[in-house]
Amino acid sequence: MKISPDITFLPKQGHSREEYEDAFAIADETWPRRFAVADGATESAYSRVWANMLVKGYVDVGPDADEIASWMDERRAAWRTFVKAQEQDMPWYSAAKVHEGAHATLLGCTFEADGFWEALSIGDCCLFQLRDSELITTWPFTDADAFTNMPPLLSSQESDKPADVQWMSGSWEAGDRFLLATDAVASFLLSDGRAKRFARPEVNREALIATARAQGAIRNDDCTLLVLTAEAGS
């Protein structure tokens, strides 16, 4: 068995690829297979760096509920090291900004060889699972109206408030498809059976997203969609 990933990502309209602040990571060589997407907050600096630290940290470690607190501490320590290296000769606003920290949402999913999967989410990325072309899991949101401009975020700074981490698990089998999406695509996929359409192997997802964005059906935000297909073979 194997899990084959297919990634589609687009920066905000009017922004360059260097300004794309979502992130994704894939570890599909050995079991357990791990995949993650994240969305760095626009109003913090170096959000892309932080979002990348989170997705890479997720696919490297795959923390469970017992390990998540220490996993976050390690990511924050990495962030402090990064900040220290940047501090020289910064203008006042960059220095202040970097000390405010960066913020991101995160969705990670781990697949075990025995057909078990477990996901964690902080914020408003969404996971969809399809079997025989039917949607069997939509998580953590099931409704496009649930999205707000202020989702829970994972901060690079220590906080008195623990991060709002949610967990989900299930089983997978050959032929299943999983969609991991950051918020703009996720809210779009939640209506009109779009998740099913986007999961089909033959569709050009980038073109569909670009068209939907041009029509105003997807709001102008970074878009990331990771489609995973469970297949027989190695």
């Binding site: 109003e43 600096a45 170096y46 760096v49 606003y93 960059s94 202040a96 900004k97 405010e100």
Partner: peptide
């Protein structure tokens, strides 16, 4: 004014 600038500040400038 400081806070407004910080809302607009990114790694590549304001």
């Amino acid at each position: 004014l400081q806070n407004l600038i910080l809302r607009c500040a990114k790694e590549d400038g304001v």
